[in-house]
């Protein structure tokens, strides 16, 4: 799995987690295998209860799996002593949906916290903490208490705190789910920035498609404790290959459903190719109406998609299909049947 330039920082093998509850066993993870490489921003998306949080929490052993193996930064977590695990955790920071700041401590003391517990002296910790607060744009609020900050500001403090021990991995569990759109994009900008400048590998758990679209390079779709599909963001977004994936993507982009035999969804690679491709389809084959069209821009490239309503004419449909195939476009019809080369 590992070669010279794609070193796997996080590697899960057949990881399972069964919660024993009063009402019986709950299987939160079922044989999940996953590799995340250095420098990636890896997204994990899925419905509520899919097991996303449980999965990301196995990556720092906040959740101890009931089966399988978790390897992080070359260490098998299950084989570490408590002390060794705590040392490793300095390198795998985490941020949370509800920020989880110390409410009785000032902003700067919150950022100092991980440094103090790892033995850095007070004055040195404060110096570093001020730098980090500058990085997240909150240097002027260092003396404030979390209760005096907005949600977006709290999450930025949490990011500064997470960066304090100079981690290699940042785990984000629904880090923007409690934020308004402006704060969300401010937080995402910071994440993108630290990935680029510090080379921190980021794992992003979310149920918001837009978050994945804006920062992730690869994504996995989870459902019922399993990973249904995984791949580069654009690939999974445009060409989901499972019904769960299709459902999440269609819902996430509010696409009109392919619920008649006369509707098709066509994917056209590249961001400028969409209009000419549809124009020439109409010119060459005949009149089709456009129900929906968009271009998805992700960090790894762009692609357009269009949902066409064909006239109820079998011959014309055949002609459209023939044309699309000849052009090498990917398209899908009702029931998820896909045509591609």
């Amino acid at each position: 799995m590992t070669d010279s330039n794609t070193e796997s920082l996080i590697s899960l093998r057949e990881v399972s987690k069964v919660f024993k509850t009063d009402k019986g066993d709950v299987t939160a993870l079922e044989n999940v295998s996953l590799d995340i490489a250095r420098g990636e921003i890896f997204g994990i998306i899925g419905m509520s209860g899919a097991g996303k949080s449980t999965l990301v929490r196995t990556m720092n052993y906040l959740e101890v799996p009931t089966g399988g193996e978790v390897k992080v930064l070359g260490k098998i977590l299950g084989s570490l002593s408590r002390k060794e695990l705590n040392d490793l955790r300095h390198k795998t920071a985490m941020i949370f949906q509800h920020f989880n700041l110390l409410m009785q401590k000032t902003v700067i003391d919150n950022v100092c916290f991980p440094l103090i517990i790892s033995g850095v002296s007070g004055s040195e910790a404060r110096k570093l903490a001020m730098e980090l607060l500058g990085l997240v744009g909150l240097a002027d609020r260092s003396g404030a208490y979390p209760a005096q900050l907005s949600g977006g500001q709290k999450q930025r403090v949490a990011i500064a705190r997470a960066l304090a021990t100079n981690p290699e991995i940042l785990l984000c569990d629904e880090a923007t789910s409690a934020l308004d759109p402006q704060s969300t994009s401010a937080v995402l900008d910071i994440l993108r920035e630290i990935n680029k400048t510090m080379g921190i590998t980021i794992v992003v758990i979310t149920h918001q498609m837009s978050v994945v679209k804006e920062i992730c390079t690869r994504v996995a779709i989870m459902d019922h404790g399993r990973i249904m599909e995984t791949g580069p963001v654009l690939e999974v977004f445009m060409k989901p290959c499972t019904s769960v994936g299709r459902h999440i993507i269609f819902d996430g982009f509010s696409l009109p459903p392919l619920d008649t035999d006369w509707r098709i969804r066509v994917v056209i690679e590249g961001d400028r190719a969409l209009k000419p491709a549809i124009a020439s389809l109409i010119q060459e084959v005949g009149p089709v109406s456009i129900l929906y069209a968009d271009v998805q821009n992700t960090v790894v490239g762009s692609a357009g998609q269009v949902i066409l309503e064909l006239p109820e004419d079998e011959d014309l449909r055949k002609a459209v299909f023939g044309y699309l195939r000849a052009q090498g476009h990917y398209f899908e019809v009702k029931g998820g049947h896909v045509y591609s080369d």
Binding site: L62, L85, L88, M94
Partner: peptide, 8 residues
């Protein structure tokens, strides 16, 4: 959060 930072 403290656990995730490696606090004993």
């Amino acid at each position: 959060a403290a656990e995730s930072m490696g606090a004993s």
